[in-house]
Design a protein around this nucleic acid. Structure first.
Lengths: 184, 184
DNA sequence: CCCACTTTAAACCGATCGGTATAGTCGTCT
DNA sequence: AGACGACTATACCGATCGGTTTAAAGTGGG
């Protein structure tokens, strides 16, 4: 990855997330990356491909961020679940002012045939699988139900944060998750 | 409201929701409404204003839809809470294939200075107030906490539905809401 | 030293964007 | 009859869209 292409991806990520994908043109991305459009197209080929790489990069950063937090918290399933909500809370504070980038992108992408569609749905499927796996360590017979419930709370927290419905919704979601797991 | 302006609003609502706001031009809206751009601009003045009226109209339809369902279910608070989830489930089936229109619009709108911003945040604030009021009828001392938890489950269900993470998420959210209220 | 690679600069393409202009038709209400 | 509001038709505006082109100027490794 060349220095210029890295700056392009950084600018694209910042602008796409802040203003939406359709609202940002490639000219602006190139300008803010300090790069010509030629360079941008040499590296990424098309805006659509740049969108795919933006989402894949954001997904990878999130999984790394979450992975480091899960490593630090140990093996106890309930603690790991709470660590997911804590990670989302921290993530939302530092680079998530507008809610979940995958959800926002999904709202703009036309249909399931878009190249970025599997990236978006893949993250949510991965999150559901993570919650379900953790739930299986607490109540194997209720793993499906608990995993889905945790995902609902998590997604709800992200949306509420993005729209500013009430303060610190991810900590509120974390508390509900704690109560839910305590009742098992 | 003239017949032409009604058709414009219908076409705008359908296209904005299905493809996103920035992805739909006024030419296409006018064409699908069977109307010239002149007529569209005579009635709505600008695309931005049309967006505002699209969201306000969708909000009004939702509140009417929900209001009729709440009327039919009686006065018992827990039953009314479940009726909200049932209403969202039914709404999502018939005109909500891409999740919450307000959340999707919020993802595309640049910032709090957009004319449509109060419409979007207003609906979420109204929903939080509704849940909190209903919760007050069950456990007045926990109304804030329960209202927020119900909102999280509800928003999570809408997002999960829009992205197709797992089937019938709003019924799953309803079941979690039922369990939450039963534990009070 | 050389060559392949990266990057810059600026002009250019057709298409579409939101928005406006002029002109004219139709039905309805006094 | 006449005025008025709703609407159609079409052409146009400057700006921006995604994308391409041609040129020249660094840059690092073999």
């Amino acid at each position: 990855m060349t220095p210029a292409s890295r700056r392009v991806l950084e600018a694209a990520g910042r602008l796409f997330y802040a203003h939406g994908i359709h609202a940002v043109g490639v000219d602006r991305i190139a300008a803010e990356a300090g790069v010509t459009k030629k360079t941008l197209y040499d590296r990424y080929g098309s805006k659509e491909q740049l969108v795919v790489e933006y989402l894949a990069d954001r997904d990878e950063r999130w999984r790394d961020f979450l992975g480091r937090r899960l490593e630090a918290v140990g093996e106890e399933p309930a603690a790991r679940v709470l660590a997911v909500f804590d990670a989302s809370h921290a993530w939302a504070l530092e680079r998530g002012g507008k809610g979940c980038g995958m959800v926002n992108a999904h709202a703009e992408l036309s249909g399931p045939d878009h190249l970025a569609h599997p990236v978006v749905t893949g993250q949510k499927a991965w999150m559901l699988d993570l919650f379900t796996t953790l739930a299986a360590g607490l109540a194997p017979e209720r793993r499906e139900e608990l995993g889905r419930a945790l995902l609902l709370l998590h997604e709800g927290g992200l949306v509420a944060h993005g729209m500013g419905v009430f303060p610190e919704p991810l900590l509120c979601a974390r508390e509900q998750a704690r109560a839910l797991l305590a009742s098992v």
